[in-house]
């Protein structure tokens, strides 16, 4: 006995598969996966200084120079939250967000680690953006940025 396969059967099968896949919702735990070491390394640089406030101020100035608006600062936690929103000539909205966190490096009393994460609708992964930020920061504080 032969089963006749209509030419539409694979199409229906694909639709059904897509529906099943579409119905699967991601669990909250799926969003608790740590970033890779490489990603963290791109976002972080160490500066040979014990003056955390100086580094934090330089970060705030740098963000302001690049059109960001400082939204929140908590110097005791070494944290700056900044954003910029621009309306393009075509009426579209362009938004970017920067989150800077500074901390003392354990075992190195004269070292401050700076971690910056940029978002433009989603996380910015382009290493060149981070390199440019840290290069400008090094120039501002006259201290060379080292990789973690």
């Amino acid at each position: 006995m032969m089963i006749q396969i209509s030419k539409f059967t694979p199409v229906w099968a694909c639709c059904l598969l897509l529906m099943v896949v579409g119905c699967q919702t991601s669990k909250p735990a799926d969003f608790f996966q740590p970033v890779t070491l490489q990603e963290r390394s791109i976002q972080t640089r160490v500066f040979e200084t014990d003056d955390e406030i100086k580094i934090l101020n330089a970060c705030a100035d740098l963000l302001l120079d690049n059109g960001f608006r400082i939204r929140e600062v908590e110097s005791r936690l070494g944290w700056i939250d900044a954003a910029k929103i621009k309306v393009t000539i075509y009426g579209g909205i362009y938004g970017a967000h920067a989150s800077v966190v500074t901390r003392r490096v354990s075992g190195r009393p004269n070292a401050i680690a700076v971690r910056v994460i940029f978002h433009r609708f989603e996380k910015v992964d382009d290493a060149a953006v981070y390199q440019e930020f840290f290069l400008k920061l090094s120039q501002a504080v006259f201290i060379e940025a080292q990789e973690l």
Binding site: F31, Q33, R40, R115
Partner: peptide
């Protein structure tokens, strides 16, 4: 930050 959260407050 390691889990990719944007710090808000």
């Amino acid at each position: 930050q390691d889990f990719g959260f944007i710090l808000q407050a």
